[in-house]
């Protein structure tokens, strides 16, 4: 089982121009999804993002979400290279104990091993970004500059948006790497 799953992964640790292209595309796509979710359910979060540059408007917030999305994509590369092996091992250990998990996991990994794995890792990263970056750091910055702050900003919709951002970024990055 372990050999079967591991054989699906071709993980390279060197970062080249292909990685950068893929992560840029993935981060923009993820930010697009997050933007749609925030426009549907949490306009205040977008205004808070815009307030980080002194413009608490939806337009500025939506634009800055793309900018922050791209900037936050590069730590994701480091996060992936540092945690993907441990994550794969963890998934293998879990699937050993559950035949149901095996039945679900193996067909998914056969479709796109990196895509599925990085989608899951991306969601974890997105949750971290939502809590640490948006929930705390952005709010502290807003307090510092005297803007409208909501410390800690941990709304469910905004966390879901950041998780979607991370998940989509990971999925696109994984698919592009396999291409």
């Amino acid at each position: 089982m372990e050999r079967t799953i591991r054989s699906l992964f071709a993980i390279e640790t060197d970062i080249d121009i292909g990685d950068i292209e893929a992560i840029l595309g993935g981060s923009l796509f993820g930010a697009l999804q997050a933007n749609v979710i925030l426009h549907l359910g949490d306009l205040e979060a977008l205004k808070l993002l815009g307030a980080t540059v002194g413009r608490p408007t939806l337009l500025a917030g939506a634009g800055l979400l793309f900018v922050y999305g791209v900037v936050l994509a590069f730590p994701f590369l480091a996060f992936v290279s540092g945690s993907i092996n441990a994550f794969v091992t963890r998934v293998i250990m879990l699937s050993r104990n559950s035949s149901l998990l095996q039945k679900v996991l193996v067909p998914l990994l056969n479709v796109s091993a990196l895509g599925v794995t990085l989608f899951a890792l991306g969601q974890i990263y997105g949750l971290l970004v939502g809590v640490v970056f948006f929930g705390v750091l952005v709010q502290l910055w807003l307090l510092f500059i005297g803007g409208p702050s909501a410390l800690p900003a941990l709304g469910l919709v905004s966390l879901f948006a950041w998780m979607t951002y991370g998940g989509m970024m990971g999925l696109v990055y994984g698919l592009a790497m396999e291409r």
Binding site: L32, N35, V36, L40, L58, L59, A62, G63, F66
Partner: peptide, 16 residues
């Protein structure tokens, strides 16, 4: 597909 997606999303996300 991305083009269509952006066009559809632009109705909700004006910055697009």
């Amino acid at each position: 597909v991305l083009g269509v997606l952006i066009n559809m999303s632009a109705m909700l996300v004006p910055v697009l």
